[in-house]
Every structure is written in structure tokens, then in C-alpha cells.
């Protein structure tokens, strides 16, 4: 009886671990998709395709800060592979550097949020925030498709 109980608990724990692991992968993919979606408006404004809208810009910057806070917590050791993850092994080899990138992303977004008041300050400050995207992907993401 005890054996069965232990076995049941073990299986349950194992299952939870699997769920948790695919969960964080799905979560970080969702957050990153959200960051991309949030960039559509300001991206169009930078290209001059859509009119400048301060509220939308500030909303995007808030999304970035929120993402930069959540993301670093979603890379436990057991989430290196699985799902459709494109996380590079480098993340776990250099977790401190990886987290620094998010800290810088958050700080840059915050700085821009304070500096941006109108279209001119938007065009002067927003591109520096976007530089963080490629800078991190270059090192910590593996392209799979």
C-alpha cells in the first residue's frame, strides 16, 4: 500500500514537473509575442506609416518593462528543451549575463518612458530601446524555422 502511495506521489510529482516545464515555455513565448505585438504601433510611427500617439507609445513601454521583469524568472533548469522553445543553451551557461540584458531592457524602457513627451522625443529615444531586442536574440536565441 505504502509502495503504491509513494509511486502515485512520484508519478504525480513527475507530471507536475512536466506541466510546469511546458508551462514556462508557453508563458515566455506568450510574453515575447506580446512584446512584438506591442511594437507594431510605435514601429509604424517610427516608419511614418501611422500618426504619432503618445498613449500607445507609453503602453508599449509599459509592456516592455512588465516583460523584462517576468521573463528572467521563466528559465528553470528543466526548461532547456521542450515545446517550441528557441532558447539557446547559452542562457543557462550565462544566466547572470542573460538577466543583465533584461535589467538593461527594463531600465532603457523606463528611461524612454520618462523622456518621451512628443513625436520628436519619441523618435530620439525609442530606437535605443528597440536595440535591446536584437542584442539579446543574437546571443540567447536559436532560430529554428
Amino acid at each position: 500500500m505504502l509502495r503504491i502511495a509513494i509511486a502515485t506521489i512520484a508519478v504525480a510529482l513527475g507530471a507536475t514537473a512536466v506541466v510546469a516545464q511546458s508551462d514556462v515555455i508557453a508563458q515566455r513565448r506568450e510574453i515575447m509575442k506580446g512584446v512584438g505585438a506591442a511594437t507594431k504601433d510605435p514601429g509604424g510611427m517610427l516608419k511614418g506609416e501611422t500618426p504619432f500617439d503618445l498613449a500607445k507609445v507609453q503602453k508599449a513601454l509599459a509592456t516592455y518593462q512588465d516583460a523584462a521583469q517576468k521573463m528572467p524568472t521563466l528559465y528553470p533548469e528543466n526548461s532547456k528543451t521542450g515545446g517550441e522553445t528557441t532558447a539557446a543553451p547559452k542562457i543557462w551557461e550565462d544566466m547572470a549575463g542573460f538577466k543583465d540584458h533584461f535589467a538593461k531592457f527594463a531600465a532603457d524602457a523606463q528611461k524612454a518612458s520618462a523622456a518621451i513627451k512628443d513625436e520628436a522625443t519619441f523618435k530620439a529615444n525609442f530606437p535605443a530601446v528597440l536595440k535591446n531586442c536584437g542584442g539579446c536574440h543574437e546571443t540567447y536565441r536559436v532560430k529554428k524555422s
Binding site: V35, G36, A37, T39, K40, G43, K47, L130, C133, G134, G135, C136, H137, E138, T139, Y140, R141, V142, K143
Partner: peptide, 23 residues
């Protein structure tokens, strides 16, 4: 042309890996 200039895809994903230095 935009990707080659800024590194962003139409979905605003920033390309990475060895395309980063190319951009």
C-alpha cells in the same frame, strides 16, 4: 528592406543569431 535596416520582421520580431551581426 526594413529588416536589413533595423533587424525587425513585419511582426516586430528582432532577428538574432548570426543575422544580428549581418544587420
Amino acid at each position: 528592406a526594413e529588416l536589413l535596416k533595423t533587424g525587425f520582421t513585419p511582426e516586430y520580431d528582432a532577428v538574432g543569431g548570426s543575422m544580428g551581426p549581418v544587420i
